[in-house]
């Protein structure tokens, strides 16, 4: 540490770190305003899935324990939209690194934490927007959540899940050498999504698959959010399904802690 830095009061450093983080996030917002079509396509993709699964496949879907498939699907789609965010985060991080923007940030007189904190802010903001679009689409096709307070709690759980996948995205983005690596994640995210209770109740799957689907980090959030929205949760299920609300908090918190730590290490390793 230099003398100048040591003399800087903690409050000042914190204030600068926050200001820098917002500035980094502001750069993303400026880019989005320049590329509204790309932003729209990203936000509409989960809407497309929602419509496809509701109207093309939904007719043949039976929710174990009863209830309409649409009401069963909407919470699952909302959770998956949070998972898909991993691609956006990873793409942003890996292209910034490939273009030398990450190194520029590192050489600028800004708080080192701001690079990652700014990414968090920007991606959380875009996820709120994405949720808004998807919820609006769901309302348009007749979906109705139970009540305001539980619904807000559900949104909170969804954003918590997004935070976990945001950190996974940051870590993968720092790990990848070039943007083509994003493709692999884009493909792998599908089996991951289907191997959960988002589209189909775990109890409708063969035994060992059901266990995997139940313990999928998304599953807790999906079930808990279904419950909060007053949607059918699908009957049956083991310990993981019965304690969905607990897992909906524990899974994202653990993932966030692990991948935030890994990301910080990886970020520091950039100077190796």
């Amino acid at each position: 540490m230099t003398a100048a830095v040591v003399r800087e009061p903690v409050a000042d450093r914190l204030r600068w770190a926050v200001a820098d983080a917002f500035a980094v996030a502001g750069r993303d917002v400026a880019h989005w305003r320049r590329q509204p079509v790309a932003v729209l396509v990203n936000a509409l993709f989960p809407v497309l899935l929602l419509l496809m699964f509701t109207y093309l496949l939904g007719g043949g879907m039976v929710v174990p324990g009863g209830g309409g498939y649409r009401d069963f699907l909407v919470p699952g789609m909302l959770a998956l939209a949070m998972v898909f965010g991993v691609e956006a985060t990873m793409t942003a991080v890996v292209t910034d690194t490939a273009r030398g923007i990450t190194d520029r940030f590192r050489s600028l007189p800004m708080a080192p934490s701001a690079v990652v904190a700014g990414r968090c802010l920007a991606d959380m903001a875009s996820s709120v927007l994405g949720l808004l679009v998807l919820v609006t689409a769901a309302l348009a096709i007749g979906w109705r959540p139970a009540g305001l307070v539980p619904s807000l709690a559900a949104i909170g759980l969804l954003l918590l899940l997004r935070l976990a996948f945001l950190w996974i995205g940051i870590y993968l983005g720092l790990l990848a050498r070039d943007p083509s690596a994003v493709m692999a994640v884009q493909i792998l995210v599908w089996p991951f999504a289907f191997l959960s209770n988002a589209f189909v109740a775990a109890s409708a799957m063969p035994g060992w698959l059901a266990v995997l689907a139940e313990w999928n980090p998304v599953a807790g959030t999906v079930t808990a959010v279904r419950d909060l929205f007053g949607a059918p949760v699908g009957s049956g299920g083991g310990w993981a399904t019965e304690h969905a609300a607990l897992l909906a908090v524990v899974w994202p918190v653990v993932l966030t802690a692990v991948f935030a730590a890994l990301s910080v290490r990886r970020f520091q390793a950039l100077s190796r």
Binding site: M1, T2, A4, V5, W16, A98, R99, G100, I101, D103, R104, S107, L108, P109, M110, A111
Partner: peptide
């Protein structure tokens, strides 16, 4: 630290 980085300018290869 930061005050030092304010005194240098960097043009990288990317």
């Amino acid at each position: 630290g930061r005050s030092w980085r304010d005194r240098i300018g960097v043009v990288g290869q990317a």
